[in-house]
């Protein structure tokens, strides 16, 4: 859940590399509220993919995405999840999660700040 009172979304982090630390920081700093601490219904379920997506992980990422209840959307958090980032030319790294699932928002940064995650969630919800 975000701290923004207008944005009640249930956020799940698929942490694949170091960007996941910034997701944890968003929780630690109160920008996101742990789900068990609130009873408010969520307007949507969000899968945040943070970190490097390798080609070998496609099936697992798709399975995770399929397991997210509707209404749902996905956010790419950080350069790796957006485009492959510093590993864009690698033989093993995917050029962003757009190749794997329908991502609705891309948050740049290496890593992005926790505020950038919340801003992206607020914007994604506003666009829906």
């Amino acid at each position: 859940m975000t701290s923004d009172p207008g944005v009640r979304v249930h956020v799940r982090d698929l942490g694949l590399a170091c960007c996941a630390v910034e997701f944890t920081a968003a929780v630690a700093r109160g920008l996101l509220t742990p789900a068990q601490d609130t009873d408010e219904p969520a307007r949507a379920h969000v899968l945040v993919v943070s970190g490097t997506v390798t080609d070998a992980l496609h099936d697992d990422i798709r399975a995770t995405w399929e397991a997210i209840p509707e209404p749902r959307f996905a956010v790419a958090f950080g350069a790796c999840a957006t485009s492959g980032g510093p590993y864009w030319d690698s033989y093993a790294v995917t050029s962003g999660i757009g190749d794997v699932l329908p991502a609705e928002h891309y948050v740049p940064g290496c890593p992005p700040r926790p505020e950038a995650l919340v801003a992206a969630l607020v914007e994604s919800v506003a666009l829906r």
């Binding site: 390798t54 080609d55 070998a56 030319d89 690698s90 033989y91 093993a92 050029s95």
Partner: peptide, 20 residues
Amino acid sequence: LLADSPVAHPLRKDVPLPRR
């Protein structure tokens, strides 16, 4: 380590990176 990959031995210096 490697999944099935078209690149046989990627750390050899003469292996081209297709995306580059």
